[in-house]
Amino acid sequence: MSAPILRMEAVERHYESAGQRIRVLGPVDLELARGEFVAIMGPSGAGKSTLLGLAGALDRPDGGAVFLDGQKLWGLRGDELAALRRRKVGYVFQDLNLVEGLTALENTRLPLELDGLARRKADPVALAALERVGLGELAHRFPEELSGGERQRVAIARAFVGPRELLLADEPTGALDSLAGETVMRHLRTACDGGKSALLVTHDARHAAWADRVLHLVDGRFAHDNASVGGR
């Protein structure tokens, strides 16, 4: 088995509040293998979004280390972080994941285009990614012409376009109805079965059930009831 796409070692995060240092996360360990789909559940304020932010270099830990595809996330400059985001990791939030002025195809192509790939070469790759989430037909629509579920699927296509293989999702189905949410999860599942990896934060057990593993975060620590569904 190859190296994990994401590894977090004894990661901690504190916030200062009214002169007090409050621990919101950690220390936690987490490993995400390639092709693995892990869901994180837990009550509000348990540190789920903080964990996700640390995993995707949106935030820095005050203790421990995060390795993304074997590279330690530490002391990276702004442009190095940008390159990391272009090439390795995609984010999907509850809403506003797409650039309004770009079509579905252009949104999907965005990381490749930002990385300097010629449009001629990037377009087929992006189109293939869109087709994998069943949106090949809608490639030239603008976000406002797509439904909420379709927008989230475009965001998933973008997260996995070309060589990108890690998706960090924070309640991606939070604004969707059950059926649209399920379609989004189905495509996420398919992508992970195809070798991509995803870390999903959700409070919805039905969506967490699509994952290979469900971790329960309580008060910044993983509860030891990790429902490890073996066999994968």
Partner: peptide, 12 residues
């Protein structure tokens, strides 16, 4: 909770 989640994963 663990059992329920495991069951949900299986059904899913």
């Amino acid at each position: 909770r663990a059992a329920a989640l495991e069951r949900m994963a299986e059904l899913t």
